[in-house]
């Protein structure tokens, strides 16, 4: 378990200019009995690319995200991922130990509700440090220093390091959750409505922060959102879903400025203009 492939070093396959995909989703379907969660989804994700999955409630966005991140087992299809050693591996063919190791080192998962992704009864510092301890870091001073660095990167004051997330506001909790996920320098981060439930000004700051982090770290990210403004700000490419099917994909600016599918046109035109 202590195999700890240079968590802070540069990743040869994290190069945004790489012409090999980081993740390949092929004819992925998830059925809940006879009801469709998502069906026949295919896409590639390249290193350093941010992909937004948009659509209305119940369109299968979260089901798709959970299948890709192996939190759900799909009914059909597969997901291949380029491991740190450069080899493409089928995620559902991995040993459970390998999958869990991947999830807490090479991946991050930012939940809509921070309480789902944080340990609410341990301090902020321990929340950030947990992944480090999980990969074998055993120096308290070092862990605390790294945790402090990450807290300041997500704009949480150093004097809050020993407070529990319960004592934090919604926006702070969400930033803490992001720090906790990014501390092992993952290459791929999944986000499920990361700005949901936050008020508009807090949302704007969080988006600003996320955009900075994603660019600085060269992260690849898959963001599920129903908020087209989030997609516009963060993503390079987007997928529009309806009733479990992908109805349009393309560069974010193209899809938002020149939507082709009737449903996308409806979606884009229904944004409130203030």
């Amino acid at each position: 378990m202590n195999a700890n492939p240079s968590l802070n070093g540069a990743h040869p396959y994290n190069d945004p200019g790489s012409d090999e995909p980081l993740l390949q989703v092929r004819s992925l379907s998830k059925l809940y009995g006879s009801r469709i969660g998502c069906t026949n989804v295919e896409f590639d994700l390249w290193p350093g690319e941010v992909l937004a999955i948009v659509g209305e409630s119940g369109s299968g966005k979260t089901t798709l995200l959970n299948c890709i991140s192996t939190r759900l087992v799909p009914t059909a299809g597969g997901v291949r991922y380029r491991m740190r050693d450069g080899r493409m591996r089928e995620l559902f063919g991995l040993e459970e130990a390998e999958r869990r190791f991947l999830m807490r080192t090479d991946w991050g998962f930012v939940h809509q509700n921070p309480a789902d992704g944080l340990r609410m009864s341990v301090s902020a510092g321990a929340n950030v440090g947990e992944r480090l301890m999980a990969v074998g870091e055993r120096n308290y001073g070092q862990i605390r220093k790294t945790a402090g660095d990450w807290l300041s990167r997500v704009e949480i004051e150093m004097d809050r390091i020993d407070d529990q997330p319960r004592a934090f506001s919604g926006g702070m909790r969400q930033r803490l959750q992001i720090a906790r996920n990014l501390v092992t320098s993952p290459r791929l981060v999944f986000m499920d409505e990361p700005t949901g439930g936050l008020d508009v000004s807090v949302q704007a700051r969080l988006l600003d922060l996320l955009r900075g982090l994603v660019t600085d770290l060269g992260l690849a990210a898959i963001i599920v959102t129903h908020d087209l403004a989030v997609a516009r700000l963060l993503s390079h490419r987007m997928i529009v879903m309806k009733d479990g099917k992908v109805i349009e994909t393309g560069l974010t600016d193209r899809v938002l400025d020149d939507p082709q599918a009737p449903y996308t046109q409806l979606l884009v035109s229904s944004i409130l203009q203030v």
């Binding site: 378990m1 459970e96 340990r119 341990v122 301090s123 321990a126 301890m133 308290y140 605390r144």
Partner: peptide
Amino acid sequence: RKMHALEEYGLMHVKLYEDIAT
């Protein structure tokens, strides 16, 4: 039980970390 099976003991150190922090 899964954590024991897969030797995922990082959490145990979280408790010790909390002790030192407090």
